[in-house]
């Protein structure tokens, strides 16, 4: 898709209106399809308003990050988008059709790897094939490929507890991608990893995404991760979380491990810090 739009040009910061709330979702914008659109979405548990109302959309093949302070409802937002939690108000549309049950054309990665301890790494990935009843040989081939690309070759027959935290999470990513879903939902997938593994796995995920161009919703509280991976970053406020800012990241891909080499990175990061300070997320004295 429009990788050319991102590479080569001098990167510029585009910021749309600071509040996205209230924009009417239309199916097509800039010639790209609004693949997932959530309108006036809110979720409360009992009397507690956990989320929203928010309007978000993800275009086909777009990498969108939700960046927000902890407890702002960003994980809830992902679960609602996946159809795993029913929204209290509002609805999700996929390709213009309202989502009524949980999404299945999807791969999900959580912060904890959630691998089955009684299956080897490879068998964990093949669970997708067994439950969905997909063609075994085709999925095996695809899984083998993913293991190669994710640096997991040789780990196929190991059990999860025999793998390092980084490798467990890589297997979890392979499981989310092996059936080639059109949507990838990730809830702080690198949150439990050390900084060094994080940088590597971020790079590997970007490379994989550039090949396959899934629509990705990536939940994170890391500013660096959000800028390093996304086409678009949505900044959320404190609870109940609302989308308060949308930042298009115009940096060429693949992006380097050390983003500081781009002056634009500093500008994006500064903008996000300022927003957080304005929201009271940070209280600097």
């Amino acid at each position: 898709m429009s990788i050319t739009r991102l590479s080569g040009n001098v990167p510029q910061i585009h910021t749309t209106a600071s509040t996205v709330k209230g924009t009417t979702p239309s199916l097509v914008e800039d010639g790209r399809r609004r693949f997932i659109a959530a309108s006036e979405l809110s979720k409360s548990f009992g009397g507690f308003q956990a989320l929203g109302p928010v309007n978000i959309h993800i275009e086909e093949g777009e990498f969108v990050s939700i960046l927000g302070p902890s407890g702002c409802g960003k994980s809830t937002l992902m679960l609602v988008v996946a159809g795993l939690l029913q929204p209290t108000k509002g609805h999700i549309e996929i390709n213009g059709r309202v989502l009524k049950r949980s999404m299945t054309d999807v791969g999900i990665v959580f912060q904890d790897h959630l691998l089955l301890e009684f299956r080897t790494a490879f068998e964990n990935v093949l669970l997708q094939q067994e439950i969905r009843g997909l063609d075994r040989n085709q999925i095996r081939k695809r899984a083998q490929e993913l293991f190669g690309k994710l640096g997991l070759s040789g780990a196929e027959s190991r059990y999860p507890r025999q793998l390092s935290g980084g490798m467990q999470q890589r297997v979890s990513i392979a499981r989310a991608l092996v059936h080639e879903p059109s949507v990838l939902l990730m809830d702080e997938p690198f949150g439990a990893l050390d900084a060094i593994s994080r940088t590597q796995i971020r790079h590997d995920l970007e490379a994989l995404w550039m090949e396959t161009r899934k629509s990705v919703l990536f939940i994170t509280h890391s500013i660096e991760e959000a800028i390093g991976l996304s086409d678009r970053v949505l900044v959320m406020s404190n609870s109940p979380g609302r989308v308060v800012e949308e930042i298009r990241i115009d940096l060429p891909r693949p992006r380097p491990a050390y983003l500081g080499q781009y002056p634009e990175f500093a500008k994006y990061a500064q903008q996000i810090y300022k927003t957080f300070e304005k929201l009271g997320v940070y209280q600097f004295k």
């Binding site: 640096g151 780990a155 507890r161 025999q162 793998l163 590597q200 796995i201």
Partner: peptide
């Protein structure tokens, strides 16, 4: 693409 530092597995003791 392969990360040699990440790839070295910590085998179960």
């Amino acid at each position: 693409m392969l990360a040699t530092d990440v790839k070295s597995p910590t085998m179960s003791p």
